[in-house]
Design a protein around this nucleic acid. Sequence first.
DNA 1: CTTTACTCGACAACAAGGTTGTCCAATCCG
DNA 2: CGGATTGGACAACCTTGTTGTCGAGTAAAG
Lengths: 160, 160
Amino acid sequence: MTRPGPHLALLLLGSYRKLVDAAVRELADRGHDDVRPSLHYAMSAIDLGAESASELGRALSVSKQAAAKTIAVLVQRGWVAVEDDTADRRRRRLRVTDLGHRVMREGEAIFDDLRKAWAERIGDDELARLEELLTAFVGADTIRLESPGWIAAEQSSIAE
Amino acid sequence: MTRPGPHLALLLLGSYRKLVDAAVRELADRGHDDVRPSLHYAMSAIDLGAESASELGRALSVSKQAAAKTIAVLVQRGWVAVEDDTADRRRRRLRVTDLGHRVMREGEAIFDDLRKAWAERIGDDELARLEELLTAFVGADTIRLESPGWIAAEQSSIAE
DNA sequence: CTTTACTCGACAACAAGGTTGTCCAATCCG
DNA sequence: CGGATTGGACAACCTTGTTGTCGAGTAAAG
């Protein structure tokens, strides 16, 4: 046992990575190579209404240039399609393809399975309690599920 | 609420980032600019016995080249000193300086404070329980505290 | 001793996922 | 209308990691 503070951070990061690594590995086994969490969240944000690169950037709390790069990857894999916007000819409208939705559904199913496996080990109520505690810490009202980067952008009012 | 599986991953990542962001910010306020967690863990690993770049790489589960880059930063900031090894003239021995130790102690104190603030919000026993659950998930026996990257390396055999 | 194998660390190129800054075309607004 | 703003492309760069290559130093046969 080391100092409790840094250890807690390590535990949180370790749990996240264990979960994500397992999901990425499992997704690869099912034929979807190299699905990064960020790609999943980007598609999710598009589905939730981020129709253009700029909007996606705002939704994910990253620059529009970063969003454009992510979109380029998604398009190249055939998970997202872009079309010209007839109403606003500057914009390029985004749409998750059927293939993209399939990848998302598989990813979600895998995460659900992993969560279930964890629940079986520590108990359903314990896991629910854990999620509750984490939610309380992260701030339930400001949580933006489509984004893995919302924390940094959030107004930082950590208890001190 | 969205699907529980992905949400859990987001909660874990979010909690980690909230904790680390707060610590980095607080450390900056105290005059230690841009202390990345990886720098802290690298110094910790050096203190724990990683005396050379190659050893540090192994301790952190990264390539020796990546370790060398981290060392370069630490040396440039005066947190780590390198000396020639008289016994093995290939090696450059690493040592955390007094200044480095001071930064580490401050970082640990801040993490402890943040943990305490969290404990006050949700209760001491609840936080302890949370740590217990996370430890169980991450795998208590394989945990390597000095490394934020041990998870990925854990079950995928050997590297380098 | 010498040869062969291995290790250490340096250097270079590159990847992922971000960041700024610049620029132009299109749209909005006063 | 004309200026301000927005959308997106392009480029350069940062961080933190990855390979690959290499020469020098050490270890271990033979």
